[in-house]
Amino acid sequence: MNTELSNIKNTFPKEEKLCSTKAIDKLFSSGQSFIAYPLRVVYTVENEPEVNHQLAAILTSVSKKKFKRAVKRNRVKRLIREAYRLNKHELSALLKEKGKRMDIAFLYLKNELPEYTEIEKAILKTVSVLISKLREGVPE
């Protein structure tokens, strides 16, 4: 087994959850967005990571209009967080290398419950788009 991959910790600590109202307002007012169907991704990039903060913080949102039952909304959010948790390492490494931090919001767009593979495909596309934008230098 590849030792580099086995050293990666696939965790999702509290610091990676975007909870700050100020940060969320800033994300939606001045963030950039793109669609990796069935997700709409809104993100902001900041130059200096704050001390004791993770390099990327995420927020997941599922509309009450699309899923009336909280059980279904929570299921979709769980799938999104799990797919992100397992595929974030490349993005985190690049953010660390560049000395930047990122806030990301995942908004679910579809009306039906997704399969995990569909969500993972969207997350992989999201990570690759964010990596390419970081490499070419996103305007802050």
Rank of each mutant, 00 (worst) to 15 (best):
E115Y: 10
S33R: 07
R81E: 05
E120C: 11
E15F: 11
E136N: 15
E48Y: 09
V71W: 01
K64S: 09
K65F: 02
K100H: 03
E97H: 04
K22R: 08
I119N: 06
R85P: 00
D25E: 13
L124W: 01
S132M: 14
V127F: 08
E136P: 07
K14C: 15
L59Q: 04
F106H: 02
K121D: 04
V71S: 09
E50W: 06
K64E: 06
I35E: 05
P139M: 04
L95E: 10
Y108H: 06
N74D: 11
H89A: 08
Y84W: 09
I8D: 13
V129M: 15
S63I: 11
L124A: 08
N87M: 11
A57G: 01
E112W: 01
E16M: 11
K68I: 04
L94R: 09
P13N: 05
Y116D: 11
K65S: 10
I8A: 14
A36L: 13
R101V: 01
K98F: 07
L79A: 07
N74G: 09
A83E: 07
I119F: 13
K96L: 00
M1L: 12
L79C: 06
N2V: 09
T44Y: 00
Y108P: 03
A83M: 13
F28H: 07
L27C: 11
E50R: 10
A23W: 03
G137I: 12
E112V: 01
I58C: 09
V76R: 10
A93C: 01
D25C: 09
L95K: 02
E82F: 10
K64L: 02
K14F: 13
R40V: 14
Y43L: 05
M1H: 10
N47S: 04
A56N: 02
K64D: 06
L109I: 14
L107E: 00
K100Q: 07
T44R: 00
F12Q: 04
F12T: 02
N52Q: 09
T3S: 12
R135Y: 06
Y37K: 13
V138L: 05
I80D: 08
K96G: 05
T44P: 00
K110F: 03
K26L: 11
I58S: 11
Y37Q: 08
F28R: 04
I58M: 14
S92C: 03
K68H: 06
V129L: 08
K100Y: 01
N52V: 02
S6I: 09
N87D: 12
L109S: 10
K133F: 04
L55W: 11
S20Q: 11
C19E: 12
S128M: 14
I24N: 04
Y43E: 10
R75E: 12
K65D: 05
I35F: 12
N10V: 13
F34H: 02
F28N: 06
K72N: 02
V129I: 15
V41I: 03
L55K: 14
R101K: 03
Y43A: 05
I119W: 07
E115A: 13
E118D: 01
Y84P: 01
L124P: 00
Y116A: 13
C19T: 14
A122Y: 09
L27T: 08
P13H: 11
K66C: 04
P49K: 15
E118H: 06
K110R: 05
V127I: 15
Y116T: 02
L79H: 06
Y116Q: 12
S128C: 14
L59T: 08
A105P: 00
E118T: 05
L79E: 03
K68P: 01
E48D: 01
Y43R: 01
E48H: 02
A83V: 08
E115P: 00
E82T: 03
V62K: 12
